[in-house]
Simulated assay, not measured.
Amino acid sequence: MSGDTLPPLREVIAAHGLNADKRFGQHYLLDLNLTRKIARLCGDMSQATVFEVGPGPGGLTRALLEEGAGRVLAIEKDSRFLPALEQISAAFGGRLSVQEADALKVDEPALVPEGPRLLASNLPYNVGTALLIKWLEADPAWWERLVLMFQKEVAERVVARVGEKQYGRLAILTAARASSRYAMTLPARAFTPPPKVDSAVVVLEPLAEADRFQDVAALSIVTESAFGQRRKTLRKSLGQAANLAATTSEALLEETGIDPGARAETIPPQGFMDLARAWRAAKGS
């Protein structure tokens, strides 16, 4: 089965009245050459279930199926898109199924308990970061690869390395759980309606279990405190996290051998993981 019998996406949008809704951060990618490039970043999908969040009218959905996804499970909150997605499912022999739900509340492993599971999405701008953190926190990782499109600025923050301008909490949380790479840039003009900024695709693969940092909750608290006041030294910026553990920032920094006069952007991910361990030990639970 193929999508050759499906009408062009612009006709689908017009026929069903699917104007993009700003409340959901919707921007449609209709260029099939671009959506195929994104789909190919998933690698071999023939035996996998590919989760897609916010498929909209189905541009990336079609590409995933055309590029050989064994099954696509689309999570769509906006019920307006369901008839258009049903057309795609019929054209591809039922390899697409749709769950009408809020992706932030979905338990993905419960929907597909076994088998290779990937995730590829043009994420809604308003929830992209929250969804990424949700998937990073999953333990054990239920996904084999994430192929995700964000606003370009957010994508740069995901893959940033220590010392770079974009380096911060999101890069550290990502590095604690996965390897990441910047895959491609998509200009604003490629979308309908065009957003005010360019977008970018990043690819993440989970670290081996032995290499994954487990206490993401502690790491999240420490990094939020440290980067909440970027211009201050760690001695001062870690105060909020230290108070939660009934200790001092000096004690945490001494425990980990980090210079109290350093600023957060100069500390590599491993340093923050050490701080998170020290914070957890001081808190005692």
Rank of each mutant, 00 (worst) to 15 (best):
M1L: 11
S2M: 08
P8K: 02
R10L: 07
V12K: 04
I13N: 00
I13P: 00
D21Q: 14
Q26T: 10
Q26N: 09
H27N: 15
N33C: 08
T35C: 10
T35G: 13
T35V: 05
L41G: 04
L41N: 06
C42S: 07
C42P: 00
G43Y: 06
G43R: 06
D44T: 15
F51H: 13
E52Y: 13
E52Q: 15
P55Q: 10
P57H: 11
A63T: 07
E66W: 00
L73M: 14
A74K: 13
A74M: 03
I75S: 05
E76K: 01
R80N: 04
R80G: 13
F81L: 07
F81A: 08
F81S: 00
P83G: 06
Q87L: 09
A91P: 08
G93A: 08
G94F: 12
S97Q: 13
S97T: 13
A101C: 04
A103I: 14
A103Q: 12
K105H: 15
V106W: 07
D107W: 09
E108A: 15
E108H: 11
P109Q: 07
A110S: 12
P116V: 07
L118F: 13
A120Y: 12
N122W: 03
N122S: 10
T129W: 06
T129C: 10
A130H: 15
L132E: 03
L132R: 09
K134F: 09
K134H: 11
W135E: 01
W135N: 08
E137C: 07
E137K: 12
D139L: 11
D139A: 13
A141R: 03
W143R: 02
R145Y: 10
L146R: 01
F150H: 05
Q151P: 01
Q151K: 09
E153P: 05
E156K: 06
V158R: 08
A160R: 06
G163R: 13
G163I: 14
Q166G: 04
G168R: 11
L173K: 12
A175R: 01
A178G: 04
S180H: 12
Y182N: 02
Y182W: 11
A183C: 09
L186P: 01
A188D: 02
A188E: 10
A190W: 01
A190I: 03
P195Y: 00
V197H: 09
V201H: 05
V202S: 00
V202C: 01
D211V: 06
R212L: 09
D215S: 07
A217N: 11
E224T: 07
A226C: 15
Q229V: 01
R230S: 14
R230N: 10
T233E: 09
T233S: 12
L234Y: 02
R235Y: 09
S237E: 03
L238V: 04
Q240I: 08
A241V: 02
A241N: 01
A245K: 06
A246Q: 12
I258G: 01
D259F: 12
A264V: 08
A264N: 01
A264E: 02
E265A: 14
T266R: 13
T266N: 02
G271R: 08
L275C: 03
L275R: 03
W279Y: 12
